[in-house]
Design a protein around this nucleic acid. Structure first.
Lengths: 185, 185
DNA sequence: AAGATACTACCTATTAGTAGATAGGCAAAA
DNA sequence: TTTTGCCTATCTACTAATAGGTAGTATCTT
């Protein structure tokens, strides 16, 4: 990994563990053994680093999409949900959830990039649901987009909420999402 | 309102607009025209102020519960969901959603008080759903607690997510929650 | 030699928090 | 009734630590 990639990776970890406003260049400096001034060389401002971190997520998301291109809607949805299982197991939250609460305090560049990312995710889940309904693999009453919003909000927020209720609640909700889509099983 | 109450009120506003780590005693000082040292008189540490803010929410929540005591499950659920409509209209997020992302950075006192609050909310929604199912007013397949988790995560996260997608998505999800519980209508 | 990368050293602003002074209100003692 | 003293609430003035960011210099790689 290049230094630049290492910085982004560490920033990503810190944003999703502590929040955008609770991490500093010094934190990264301490973690990867590089001076804060050197981080500024790669990312002039904190916002630049924030934007780069979101862009990295977008790239990884596009890659995941491609990986699941020829799989079934159910496999795709499970793939999507397992991202959050990973996040949960690391005691983090998802990038959208983390930055959405800080939205009023960040620059427009971050806001706009995050909008792009959220739109991308919503679009993919909507597509999965549309495809799944057509194949009679999924059952639901609302529009695919609305159902996608329901599922995304479920999984995004249970990552956060299960920190406060019980860790097991994450899997309970994850399974309930799938079960709800496949009542005939 | 006493000074103490005004401070809590302002802190609440700032926490839910900007996040716990993005507000300072100076922000409150500027807003209400009192020196930061005077805020420390009422709340020795920032954590003390955080805890007091959650306690205030708990009290208001208990009051709301009492107000709806003799109403129908549907009225109760609508009452619960309308809290979030209010939050959304003010461009804030809910306290649980805001602090849950900052959870790794706050003191245990805040963490524990927030757990109490979250447990209280989950309990009430679970009760509403149990009652509604018994009265055949609501229909759902999972346990009431699981369904409560689904609904709370929906409404909590759509407040955040609709900042990124479209503001109308909030009402779409809110209506879908009710419709899903009452498919016979 | 030249560009990329990292460094030292610094700056200014802000943070949470503290010490000590002051002012007003209230109540018991003189 | 006046005085004494305490309590509440606020203030001014300060601290040490940390924040994001910059200028100029050194080092490494090609």
């Amino acid at each position: 990994m290049t230094t630049r990639e290492t910085i982004i990776d560490t920033a990503d970890h810190l944003i999703r563990s502590n929040g955008f406003n609770a991490f500093s260049f010094k934190d990264i400096s301490n973690k990867i053994g590089i001076k804060t001034a050197s981080i500024h060389y790669h990312f002039p401002t904190k916002s630049d680093l924030g934007v780069a971190t979101i862009k990295e997520h977008i790239e990884r998301f596009e890659y995941l999409k491609k990986e699941f291109e020829n799989k079934s809607p159910l496999q795709k949805l499970n793939g999507f949900l397992s991202i959050y299982s990973q996040i949960k197991s690391e005691n983090k939250v998802c990038l959208v959830g983390s930055l959405a609460t800080d939205l009023n305090t960040v620059e427009d560049s971050i806001k706009n990039e995050l909008k792009n990312f959220a739109e991308l995710v919503l679009l993919w889940v909507t597509e999965i649901l549309t495809e799944g309904k057509k194949q009679k693999m999924f059952e639901f009453q609302t529009t695919p987009r609305t159902k996608a919003l329901m599922i995304i909000t479920n999984i995004l927020a249970i990552v956060q909420l299960s920190r406060l209720t019980q860790a097991e609640d994450f899997d309970i909700v994850k399974e309930a999402i799938i079960k709800d889509l496949r009542p005939h099983i």
